[in-house]
Design a protein around this nucleic acid. Sequence first.
DNA 1: ACATCCATGAAGCCAGCCTACATAGTCACT
DNA 2: AGTGACTATGTAGGCTGGCTTCATGGATGT
Lengths: 308, 308
Amino acid sequence: MDVQRLELLRELAERGSVTAVALATHRTPSAVSQQLKVLEREAGLPLTERSGRGLVLTDAGRALAASATDIAVALERATAVWDTFRNTATGDVSLVTFPTAGQMLLPGVLQDLASHEGLTVHCTDMDPDLSDFPALTSDYDIVLAHSMRGQLTWGGRGLTSVPLMTEPLDVGLPADHRLAGRVSLGAGDVVGETWIGVPVDYAFERVLHDIELQTGSRARITQRFADIRLIESFIMAGLGIALVPRYTSSGNQPGRMVLKPLRGLDSERQIVALMRPDRAERLAVRTVVDALRARAAQVQAEHAAAAG
Amino acid sequence: MDVQRLELLRELAERGSVTAVALATHRTPSAVSQQLKVLEREAGLPLTERSGRGLVLTDAGRALAASATDIAVALERATAVWDTFRNTATGDVSLVTFPTAGQMLLPGVLQDLASHEGLTVHCTDMDPDLSDFPALTSDYDIVLAHSMRGQLTWGGRGLTSVPLMTEPLDVGLPADHRLAGRVSLGAGDVVGETWIGVPVDYAFERVLHDIELQTGSRARITQRFADIRLIESFIMAGLGIALVPRYTSSGNQPGRMVLKPLRGLDSERQIVALMRPDRAERLAVRTVVDALRARAAQVQAEHAAAAG
DNA sequence: ACATCCATGAAGCCAGCCTACATAGTCACT
DNA sequence: AGTGACTATGTAGGCTGGCTTCATGGATGT
């Protein structure tokens, strides 16, 4: 009963094809195929079966892959033990973020982690919503993901999820807008405005939907952008209003743009760190996550202080 | 980070010497030493240190050995998964028992397990109290142990313990004894008798101690035997009375011996199956333990019916 | 001081896992 | 229907890594 082989089976469960597993583990497909065959012979029952030109796991295969995860967790916990004894979080940690969260958190996090000799964090950004967050955990140690409240798409898949912060979505207005003097806005105040939206199927869309549901009117959306800077430039040009994540935006720009909270709506997003459970056990990974949490708390505190 | 090596470290933690580990794992001491050295180099910190001509684990070594157990548990759980899918508990299970429990349970258990093709149970007996029950778990899958209530010497050591039954300790009397007509006996009734005891430091001794404590008198013990049959033969010969485990003894022998419960005393022993946690996960082992539990319950039920 | 018991080092053997290459089945597109 | 791309999987051979054997050195006890 070999751990390496079980690991291969788990990779197969996640990635779905022998070739993908081979790519990910720096081996040839032949090697993977051979090892799986050995495992199957040891098990004494079929773990995979062909389906078209690929192959899929049997029930037994899936069950075994699941317990392989437990083994991986125990293993990583063991290495975390000696990392703790050396008191050094070392190694490489890969992280993928969506742009806004990265801009808000990562510079500070990397500065905070600079003191950790031997700990290298590799960061990449990837468009949100276009990418399947859970799937990314196969290729990155940490995936910064966001979700609107209530839609807990992950966690069910056996992934570890650490909440970092909840960020309110405000309404961004030009500074000379007729509503710019208000403290907060309700759905009725804003539904008639010209909106700058996000691409269809982006998560923010739901808040606009809620506004429409609450008022019974349709919002007029003329532009759709993914990039927050682009949206803000349109707001400041007086071309419309938009939902803007409070901490991520450039904030109130005196004379150009103001942010107003939405009331009576569930208008905030959860930002979480998403990980495969075994990866989450690594001391280096936990160290980075802790830094993320600290930084997120700091950002929230700063904004609370500024508002109060 | 290799599982095999961690396993070796765990064996070292249990057995205390490289040579012992080598013996147990069918390797040469040199091989063990080399592997431990590799592990140490990987860990980047000392896991063992010399002490006299042997060596002992450092704190880090012990911690790592402990997490090695978690890995072993996860691993055995994985093999249990596929055993479950094959629906066959196969392989060899080794068991060591003290004589009385073995006589009471094992014949029935082995009969019950005869239907399991490919499951072989190797049984051995060993003198109780003389042997250190927890230590035996290194060499046997299942250790049948007994303890008096309140003395939970094991469990603390990270061992898995499954209770099988609690067996009352009765007083065995010759059939023509003056107390033979009584339903039950108190400490005062029996303390003045001539006793046949067990070797000093046997667990039963505690009940006699309690009797002495309760009455303030000393019991007169003239013979000390470990073997229950021998004790019974002395009772029937009218040479004294003794504590007799109710289910294990030959029971009431019309015209020769009667058993009377002790009241007002905590006079019973716990019979448990003691296992290393990883071994306990094996389906074959669990199957045997289940059979033991069933048999034990049956024995208790039969006696309850006979008494009622 | 000697015998003994321990851990460990060096040299060499061998199994197991990998790569490279070749084969066979499945699918999509013409 | 045929061709090409893509899938998994066999076969042959090389290389790494863990084992054994033999030898060394320190610690203990008589």
